[in-house]
Simulated scan of single mutants.
Amino acid sequence: MASVELSERIPNNVGLSHDRRLRRALEAWQPQFLEWWNEMGPADSQAREVYLRTATSVDRKGWASFGYTHMPDYRWGVFLAQPQEERKIAFGEHRGEPAWQEVPGEYRAALRRLIVIQGDTEPASVEQQRLLGLTCPSLYDLRNLFQVNVEEGRHLWAMAYLLHAYFGRDGREEAEALLQRRSGDEDKPRLLGAFNEQTPDWLSFYMFTFFTDRDGKYQLSALSESGFDPLARTCRFMLTEEAHHMFVGITGLSRIVTWLAMTRMCRRPDLSD
């Protein structure tokens, strides 16, 4: 496994400094990503310094490094979980065979489709949540929203890396298309219907992070068992970040339920009852 390259333009542990073709491709994609972020990321937030968690490595000491940063300067990067030595495919027709380090030709289309759909959900949720910061109930909620947003952006980077690294020209075109579609757009909508719905208020956001991100966790858990090892390692690391998204939904709904219960308890009884 390559060492963590934090000084590179794109922080990574996949050896971009030794792969000039892939590095150039991702560095060409990076300005398009930043343009998308500035257009569709959290509204009126680009000048703010936010206390954010940023991954600097994939071990326990580095995956959760905290500090203040402007969101456009956030160090999005490419991180894969540590490889498992002599990993075998755990199920299916190829059970017991060595995990694939390259894309098998017979599964190329299916794997590309899975990666594209997963990648499409990441920027879509940022677009759905773009205006929520303007009505946040507290600074605590605002910080949690921004943390979710930057991590969805990094998950997009994870899928874009796989497309660039393993799927040639088709992959590069698909990675560009991830930045061209828009949630709810009539002409270029997101691929899954749930990610074209509006998230107009914080209750909707809490429900999204409680239910949809829970579904996303199971999707990532399934992909983390993939016979295609780079996809499996990518999703194993993404799962460390997905837990916080579910936490936001669980605690947000818990606060609402508690507030409703307290309101009911404090309400004066109706003497006519």
Rank of each mutant, 00 (worst) to 15 (best):
P72Q: 02
W157E: 04
L139R: 12
G153T: 01
L163K: 02
Q101F: 05
D187N: 12
E174R: 12
P269F: 01
R154C: 05
Y166W: 06
L163I: 06
L191G: 04
T240S: 04
G119A: 06
L231W: 09
G153P: 00
P123A: 01
T234H: 04
H164F: 07
L6C: 10
F228S: 05
P137L: 01
L203E: 12
E8D: 15
A64P: 07
P31K: 00
L239V: 06
E186H: 08
L142H: 03
T212N: 07
F91D: 12
L231I: 00
E5D: 15
T54S: 12
T263V: 07
S226C: 12
M262E: 14
G77S: 10
V78F: 04
N196C: 09
L231Y: 09
L253M: 10
I10C: 09
L131K: 08
K217F: 13
E27W: 08
R214H: 08
G153R: 08
E35P: 05
S221W: 02
A194S: 12
E241G: 14
E242T: 15
L260N: 11
H164M: 10
L145C: 01
S17C: 02
G15E: 00
D170V: 07
T135I: 07
E151N: 11
R23V: 03
A81I: 07
P11L: 10
N144A: 15
